[in-house]
């Protein structure tokens, strides 16, 4: 190995072998789960405790702002939070600020309400989608009715008994935002800071580190980041959903990636780098994967 032959071959490895490895590391733990333990972090525990602290029967404003591209992370979160609210007999009032959100939320509501035996307009209200993100969030502080005159299925808000005394942030003891975008910032600015409402945030893992400072400042009471956060919440709520099912695969792929990063660095240091030549690996074509 004095000429670094093995390491050089490793540096020239066709990246598609890495895709195969990652694919296997994902599929095998899903097919043969070992259910690795999931330990809740203080951030997710705080999220759970905040929901637990709301008096039974209280309304909760739930803004579920995501679309299919990030449903892998936020859909399990939504189902877990909804089921937890239903179990505590809280009354979620749900809305979305994303045009492709309603279909996903309808599905999450169907799963959660069926599992917990809850009924539309009695135990929860789904207001549907409204365009305008920041202006809608601002408007919710003044009048929900002006923003959402009807619910998702076309029932006038005034005909839903659950909405009788609900018309602004002031009427909700808790606001929850599950978001994959800057909408989380708008809720922090408007609902938490301007209207001083206790706010909980669930976001994609990519976003999570950006929102840690708001926990420290008290603008967020709890934070749930990505599939791992959802798995922790499922564990706290005594559920076994898609997030917990996916954690074995998540751990396995992380191990594979860490090993590959170490091997890649050792190879680079041992060989002094590899100039990309005609024989270097490629996915082929002008648009490589």
């Amino acid at each position: 190995m004095a000429d670094g032959g093995l390491w050089r071959r490793l540096l020239r490895l066709d990246r598609r072998w890495i895709f195969v490895l990652v694919g296997l590391a994902t599929a095998v733990p899903l097919l043969f789960p070992v259910n690795l333990p999931v330990t809740p972090t203080p951030r997710v525990q705080a999220f759970y405790d905040a929901v637990e602290s709301v008096p039974e029967g209280s309304p909760v404003l739930l803004s579920l702002d995501y679309e299919p591209d990030i449903m892998a992370e936020l859909q399990p979160m939504s189902i877990a939070v909804l089921r937890h609210c239903f179990r505590r007999n809280l009354k979620p009032v749900i809305l979305t600020l994303y045009p492709a959100g309603p279909g996903l939320i309808e599905r999450a509501l169907a799963i959660a309400s069926e599992a917990e035996g809850k009924k539309r307009d009695v135990d929860f209200v789904f207001l549907g989608y409204k365009s305008g993100s920041q202006s809608v969030i601002l408007g919710l502080g003044e009048s929900i009715r002006s923003m959402f005159p009807e619910d998702f299925w076309g029932t006038p808000i005034d005909d839903i008994p659950l909405m009788a005394n609900l018309n602004a942030y002031a009427d909700f003891p808790l606001v929850i935002n599950l978001s994959g975008s800057a909408i989380a910032d708008y809720y922090i600015r408007i609902a938490a800071t301007r209207y001083h409402k206790p706010l909980l945030l669930g976001c994609t893992a990519v976003m999570a580190t950006d929102y840690y400072p708001y926990l420290s400042s008290g603008q967020l009471l709890g934070l749930m980041g990505g599939m791992k956060g959802a798995a922790e919440y499922e564990r706290l709520a005594g559920l076994f959903g898609d997030a917990r099912r996916g954690m074995d695969a998540q751990s396995m792929v992380h191990v594979v990636i860490v090993i590959l990063v170490i091997l890649g660095n050792v190879a680079l240091l041992t060989t002094g780098g590899l100039r990309r030549g005609p024989g270097a690996s490629s996915g082929g074509g002008s648009r490589e994967p």
Binding site: T26, L31, M227
Partner: peptide
């Protein structure tokens, strides 16, 4: 966190293929 997010997307798709389409996942 970014790696975790991307892996989560893959896991969800593989879960869909193995469970909803092929029906070979436990449960």
């Amino acid at each position: 966190y970014t790696v975790m997010a991307r892996v989560s997307l893959l896991i969800a798709r593989v879960q869909f293929l193995l469970r909803d389409w092929l029906g070979v996942l436990p449960g």
